[in-house]
């Protein structure tokens, strides 16, 4: 189990994270927050790239920074800005990283082939990466994170640059991997979290705003999300007086999906709607 205990991280006078406490066991954990909320700082602390100003991070009871290479051997990490050697092929680069991870050469060769196949890069495994698209590079990044069959897989914005088909493939892969390991992924693409995360963590104002299972997240907006159709000429007034989640124009009418916390303010012709995680995200971060 990976435990974050009362962790605070400061950069000079700026507090990036304040008194964070979390526990991770097997499963997929989705870290949701807008940019600048401290997601990447938390991720970097979990992979020992940064150290807490106060508090501690433990893995099976041992402080991760003092575990050194023993902890890193259990780790798979995809950074937000995945760096690579432009003149290397994916196969060369994965072999190189496998050596850095201390994987035996024969095992590395076998694993590289498996992973390249898994991320659908077998056809271009010997092509130089400088010719690759952003999505292809991201897939190399995902493959390298899984090279050492990590017990803890930490992915910072893993689906950025992936097309819908690749995204679905990636979600399925993560769901399969999470059976026997900790998978922590940070993103602001809510649908990724909605599909695969067992547990959702919101960070707001540098603190944990909520840490709950996927199904419970939406209860915060239970009976507060509505659908309503308004004539086009009244749509601006309606928009200014309600918390709008989405707006669609059709045949002189405007269809609104909105949040209304006070039942007395709900228009009589509005229909109640089931809230989703994107609604919660927009609601939680409405001031940002």
């Amino acid at each position: 189990m990976l435990t974050v205990q009362n962790v605070t991280k400061r950069f000079g006078k700026f507090t990036a994270l304040q008194d964070i406490s979390l526990e991770f066991s097997h499963g997929v954990y989705g870290l949701l927050a807008p940019n600048g909320a401290g997601k990447t700082t938390l991720m970097k602390m979990l992979v020992t790239l940064l150290f807490p100003t106060s508090g501690q991070i433990l893995y099976d009871g041992a402080e991760i920074s003092s575990m050194g290479s023993k902890y890193r051997e259990k780790l798979g990490y995809l950074p937000q800005d995945f760096g690579y050697y432009r003149n290397n092929s994916p196969r060369q680069y994965l072999h190189y990283l496998a050596a850095l991870k201390g994987i035996d050469r024969k095992e590395a060769e076998k694993r590289t082939e498996e992973l390249l196949d898994m991320v659908a890069l077998s056809d271009v495994k010997d092509k130089k990466m400088k010719k690759f698209s952003g999505g292809m590079i991201q897939r190399v990044g995902i493959a390298q994170a899984m090279l050492n069959q990590p017990e803890i897989l930490i992915l910072d914005e893993p689906t950025a640059g992936l097309d819908p088909k690749e995204r679905v493939r990636f979600r399925n892969l993560l769901a399969e991997l999470s059976k026997d390991r900790i998978v922590i992924l940070s993103t602001h693409i809510v649908s990724d979290i909605e599909c695969i995360a067992n547990q959702v963590i919101f960070i707001k104002d540098h603190e944990v705003y909520c840490n709950t299972d996927r199904d419970s997240v939406c209860t915060v907006l239970q009976n507060k999300v509505f659908l309503c159709t308004v004539p086009e000429e009244a749509s601006d007034d309606f928009e200014n007086s309600h918390f709008i989640l989405s707006r669609r124009e059709e045949a002189g009418q405007t269809h609104f999906r909105f949040i209304c916390e006070n039942q007395a303010d709900v228009p009589p012709d509005a229909e109640i709607s089931t809230p989703n995680m994107e609604d919660v995200f927009l609601y939680v971060y409405r001031e940002e």
Binding site: T48, S69, R72, D81, L97
Partner: peptide, 13 residues
């Protein structure tokens, strides 16, 4: 310039 430092810092070596 290769921006590989972060990634390599999480490896065994």
């Amino acid at each position: 310039i290769s921006h590989t430092f972060d990634l390599k810092m999480t490896c065994r070596y």
